[in-house]
Design a protein around this nucleic acid. Sequence first.
DNA 1: AATTATTTTTTACGCGCGTAAAGAATTTGC
DNA 2: GCAAATTCTTTACGCGCGTAAAAAATAATT
Lengths: 343, 343
Amino acid sequence: MGERKIRNMEEFASVSGISRPTVSKYFNDPSSVRASTRARIEAAIEQYDYRPNIYAINQNRQLTKNIGIVVPYLADPFFGEIARVIEQRCIEAGFSPSLFSSHGEAEQERDILDTLRSLKPAGVLLAPLGRTSDKSVIEAFCRDVPTVLFDSNIEGMGEAFVGSDNYSFVSQTVEYLSRTGEPPCFFEMKHPANPNANKRRRAYLDMMERLGLEPLVLQIEGTGWEFEEIGRKGGHDILSRKAMRTNTILCSNDRLAIGLLSACYEAGYKVGRDAGHDLRVASHDDHPFSRYTCPSLTTAAHDYANVSGHAVDTLFHLIESGGRFSTRDETLFSARLIMRDSA
Amino acid sequence: MGERKIRNMEEFASVSGISRPTVSKYFNDPSSVRASTRARIEAAIEQYDYRPNIYAINQNRQLTKNIGIVVPYLADPFFGEIARVIEQRCIEAGFSPSLFSSHGEAEQERDILDTLRSLKPAGVLLAPLGRTSDKSVIEAFCRDVPTVLFDSNIEGMGEAFVGSDNYSFVSQTVEYLSRTGEPPCFFEMKHPANPNANKRRRAYLDMMERLGLEPLVLQIEGTGWEFEEIGRKGGHDILSRKAMRTNTILCSNDRLAIGLLSACYEAGYKVGRDAGHDLRVASHDDHPFSRYTCPSLTTAAHDYANVSGHAVDTLFHLIESGGRFSTRDETLFSARLIMRDSA
DNA sequence: AATTATTTTTTACGCGCGTAAAGAATTTGC
DNA sequence: GCAAATTCTTTACGCGCGTAAAAAATAATT
């Protein structure tokens, strides 16, 4: 290295002793040139540290090698993990992932889709905000850009959906809790941000009926994405009102549960499954921190790896198919019950 | 809307009745054209939903309006929050932020800087991995791209550093703990990922000496970024060995403390500051979840808003200054003690 | 060695926009 | 109302690359 700086592909071609069109061909697909040619080009890359100007490359393309990843809330480590796995897979497949977070704001989600449109991505993996999303904006976006929805489904939008089977989450926790102790009430936000919450409530009601038990849904106030605080406040509320009918509370998701556990602690309730405890608390998601709550949280785990893996696979398939599927299929992965100390 | 699709600025100029160079001028700076012209262009934008091709725009620029944001570990909600604030400010200033996470891997950090270089950003806000970072890669990057380091300092790299004053964190917690009870031992990783950890240890030793107390540093095994698990395992270790000399443990950071609290709970130690508790635990960072641990965690809080705000301001200033500062200044913001229930 | 198949070179054009220069039109100041 | 200042139009070129077509070179096949 250390040679004079190469300014463009023309110069690079001349110093590497290969014609520019062939060099261009190489950068589009290294295997498309003869092995000996490839070796010479790669030696020159090594020596001169040249790489093509991505803006010039993309200017004439109506489709780039970019992939957009949109998550609703990045301060939730769940999505940080998802992002990591998805990014990795995109890079391995030769794409350039761009990560965006709506940070819980519909307006941000709109702006992100706007930005993404002008990035002309080959495809987009979108985990929408859910209830607060501007449906018409998302619909319009999905018409223009090949999009796979994940985590949170919006009926009919995107070419496919990949997520978790909420029924499988709730059926396992309800069954487990009922079998091992008093039946659970269901603790959730009155106006949940995420459509999964509604599915989970319905699954709870359904399971309870199926088991011949009387359901009890406790809906707490609060909006936004600060679920822990909402859970804590709501927890204090139901504890002080003694709104539960049994000693068992099933939370819609782990972040609410983390808040509820905090309220239980503050109010002097001992949570745990063994004798000598006042309450059992269980939940859904297997949030990265649920292992470290006190007590550790019994929950139902997403199949992280499969959800993100299959979402990426589906997107790649979509891209290869020219951006459209004939039918929109929804893939749901089952949850896995994680028994810890809280219930 | 609904008119025929505009393919380029030429077409847009003709339908808006303004010449292309003027339209171009408008998009580079709307205030650079006469108000009446601006109104006509904006009406046409509204009507035809045209926006310039960003790839064509950036191709001839040696500097774009992009800003790169690199954080070490996005599954830590702390960085999710930072990212939110910084992104917001960049957008307001008319830049396009691109967020990247090294996910704790030096190789990823290297790849990200590689990608960023080809994005030709106007500037980069980089929170390096720290100890595991490839210093020479970062140094080379900072030579080519105007960069402000934040959160974690690497001596001499980047045009400036903005972070928190580790001494201020530790001096406040040590002072508080010593004043209100037994003096603390210091709980940390033997091989911390982050250079802040070393500063904090030194600050602890210094403060203890200053107060005439005997220091005790407990260094636990474990590498990587799963601090909670490392803290939990290390916690069990020191608890079973009864390695502490007093009833008070000061953790290097909140994520370790979260793990330690979990170990304390599992081992049957009651944590809290009131009578009837076995241990006091305090820490540093004011991690978003530290409010929701059981008991809630006494800690020293980063000045989030100021750190991220000043980092962005510094970068803007750097960009206006042509990418170089004559001197590299380091700005440190003080911590704020947050007294909760754990100590 | 001759034929065929494959790969590379040469030449040339276009993408969408930035931008420079010179002249025309409009606005501003007095 | 007129000169000066500002803004806009016209014309034209270049950026770095993709890519098409035809010719040349190289490799594979028989």
